[in-house]
Simulated scan of single mutants.
Amino acid sequence: MINQTVQTLTIAGTDSGGGAGVMADIKTMQERHVFAAAVVVAVTAQNTIGVQDFMAMPKKMIEEQFASVAGDLKIRACKTGMLADVATVEAVVENLKKYDLGPLTVDPVMIAKGGARLLSEDAIATVRNELLPLADLLTPNLPEAEELTGTKIETKDQMTTAAKKLQELGVKNVIIKGGHQTSSKESSDFVLLESGKSFWVSSPRIDTVRTHGTGDTLSSCITAEIAKGKDMETAIRIGKKYVQATIANGIEVGHGHGPLNHWAKISDEEVED
């Protein structure tokens, strides 16, 4: 019966403030009833106000973490978050190719809520050329999708075009998050699946600054659901519903962009087809 419990892996940076990164990933995965392991590739000094400093892990330490996890656990799905720089991205790509860690969700974290850059400019090309072809799902927000495609995205038509461009880079499934389109009363994300099916998932926009870690939480929830055997569309719809609940049922932590409420509960019946 060893390794019968569903296990997931987050490959990302820490958040000392607890709201994003590895901390948000583990909280989300735990809440969705899977066991979460972690490969820490960077450490940040961070809170709800901003990122004060960060340091990438040496390649040897990244490799040893991958080896430790793969040598003992049965990872059924994994995700990447903050990857810091070229050397880190390359180390992660190398190890993702080396070990079977299940379907991969790539959250291309580039800029923190407070404005700090979490992925160096030169690493964007490495993500585009080396990491994206390994991804089963890519979850960029609008600025990240613009960086990866080299195009401006301001309309829904431009979101659909960008998703197709991202798929052409080798990604199987894409969800472009529309949360940065603040002019709308709804937050609408565009999904393009490997099958060619596309659809929008929308939720009411909530007027709050307590949205720190939304991208990490969405990608972690989807990863957990995939690990449990859900199909991609269902996993994405559950992820969207869960994130909405974490924002709607807010908690009061910190003085800036506060974290989500990862205790939020949703039922499978709430997820619409």
Rank of each mutant, 00 (worst) to 15 (best):
M1R: 07
Q4W: 01
Q4E: 14
V6H: 06
V6C: 13
Q7T: 13
T8P: 01
T8Y: 01
L9K: 07
T10E: 00
I11W: 03
I11G: 05
M23G: 04
I26V: 14
R32T: 12
V34W: 11
A38T: 15
A42V: 13
A45Y: 04
Q46N: 10
G50I: 12
Q52A: 14
F54A: 07
M55N: 13
M57G: 06
P58W: 05
P58Y: 09
K60F: 05
M61E: 11
I62H: 01
I62M: 05
Q65G: 04
Q65M: 03
F66E: 07
A67D: 04
A70D: 02
A70T: 03
L73F: 13
I75S: 02
R76H: 11
R76M: 12
M82Y: 03
M82W: 08
L83K: 10
V92S: 07
V93L: 12
L96W: 12
K97E: 15
K98S: 11
P103R: 13
T105A: 14
D107P: 08
P108R: 09
M110S: 13
M110D: 10
A112D: 04
A116I: 02
R117D: 09
S120R: 10
I124M: 12
I124W: 08
T126C: 13
V127G: 10
N129Q: 15
N129M: 07
L134T: 10
L137P: 03
L137H: 06
E144P: 12
A145R: 07
E147P: 05
K152C: 11
E154S: 15
T155M: 11
T160Q: 15
K164D: 14
L166G: 07
E168H: 12
K172C: 09
N173D: 12
Q181Y: 11
T182L: 09
S184W: 09
S187K: 05
S187P: 01
S187H: 00
D189I: 06
F190R: 08
V191N: 10
V191S: 06
S198E: 15
F199R: 11
S203V: 12
P204T: 06
P204M: 08
D207I: 01
G215K: 03
T217P: 05
L218I: 06
S220P: 05
S220M: 05
I222W: 01
I222R: 00
I222T: 03
A224T: 02
A227D: 06
A227E: 00
K230G: 04
M232I: 14
G239S: 01
K240A: 03
A245Y: 01
N249V: 07
I251V: 15
I251K: 12
E252L: 13
L260A: 06
L260Q: 03
N261T: 11
W263T: 15
E269Y: 13
E272D: 13
